[in-house]
């Protein structure tokens, strides 16, 4: 079997398993999985930049929340329906990612990390500053009546599950196509050896900018979808914690792999879910996981699997 066929089977199998999940799993876990799939889209967006292009951002919450608030505010204040509001969310992500990319890509390494962290913090504070419109920390609810997309009621658990699944499958397919395409190949080359890539005649800056915009846009898609599916928009999704989480998910699952982001999100979600029933200090686990991953498993789950057993894994 060719690597492409194996990869197709793996990804197709995952989607089928998730379809089956709806019919097998208890309702509680279905709800969790819907959240995990929507958040895995965020992780896949993060992975485009971190895993495939080698750029570590500490501020992706700004893109996630740009999507969420672009969607939510246009429902709340412009009276948009779910469809146009979703598009607004995506556009907000594209615009923000372009602006941040143009500025932040003048820096590299640690400076890039801090610049993205600062921009994201500024976005978070801006949401708080405009509390009269955004309702700040408290956030606001998207009413079920505003969550009708093409006649489908996204507040219904079944439709919600499948909407999340469709989105997840589309983004997974899109990212796996991306890294097979010449553009994605150049991103990987930049991650591996930036100077060599430049001296092969590639415009490194434009490729990186493309990666930031793509990554930011996918994150915004996730944010807008999460708001629509679960009916809530709040400032906590713009906080530093939501910039750290996708990093954690991708590190845990395996940076630079297609299934890694989903695996990482799945594991971390359930770890935190279990822990938070015991203690309020559930972020302790996230901290410990970050330290342990950095020390002992920088490749993550899918990365170790690829190295030991399956070199074909995309």
């Amino acid at each position: 079997m060719t690597p492409t066929a194996k990869a197709f089977l793996l990804h197709g199998g995952l989607v089928l398993a998730l379809v089956a999940g709806h019919f097998i799993l208890p309702e509680y876990h279905q709800g969790n999985l819907a959240r995990i799939m929507a958040l895995a889209v965020y992780a896949m967006g993060y992975n485009v930049l971190f895993g495939y292009s080698g750029l570590l951002s500490l501020g992706h919450a700004m893109f996630f929340s740009a999507g969420m608030y672009g969607m939510g505010l246009s429902v709340q204040h412009l009276g948009f329906g779910a469809g146009p509001a979703f598009v607004c969310g995506i556009l907000a992500g594209v615009v923000l990612a372009t602006a941040v990319g143009v500025l932040a890509l003048r820096t590299t390494g640690v400076a890039f990390m801090i610049v993205t962290l600062m921009f994201s913090q500024a976005v978070f504070l801006t949401i708080l500053y405009f509390t009269p419109w955004t309702r700040g920390d408290e956030g606001f609810v998207i009413q079920p009546v505003d969550r009708m997309l093409f006649g489908i009621d996204l507040s219904d658990a079944t439709y919600r599950y499948f909407a999340a699944l469709v989105l997840f499958a589309i983004v997974m397919l899109a990212t796996s196509r991306l890294i097979q395409a010449p553009f994605g190949r150049v991103l990987i080359a930049i991650r591996e050896n930036e100077e060599r890539t430049r001296m092969l005649g590639y415009d490194v800056y434009r490729h990186k900018l493309g990666a930031v915009i793509l990554s930011g846009t996918i994150s915004a898609v996730s944010g807008a979808a999460y708001g629509l599916l679960f009916g809530y928009v709040g400032a906590s999704f713009a906080s530093v914690q939501y910039s750290i989480l996708p990093l954690l998910w991708v590190l845990l699952g395996g940076a630079g792999t297609i299934v890694g982001p989903f695996l990482g999100t799945l594991f971390m979600f359930y770890l935190i879910d279990l822990t938070s029933s015991i203690t309020t200090a559930y972020m302790l686990l996230a901290g410990a996981a970050l330290v342990l991953l950095t020390l002992f498993a920088p490749e993550g789950l899918a990365g170790s699997f690829r190295r030991r057993l399956a070199p074909w894994l995309p």
């Binding site: 990987i188 050896n193 060599r196 430049r198 001296m199 005649g201 590639y202």
Partner: peptide, 23 residues
């Protein structure tokens, strides 16, 4: 800039080997 000159038809090989080791 460098990449535009390469596009114009120069190719450069590094003095210290510079390949993509993990590809």
């Amino acid at each position: 800039p460098a990449h535009r000159r390469i596009q114009a038809g120069m190719a450069y090989t590094f003095q210290i080997t510079s390949v993509f080791p993990r590809l």
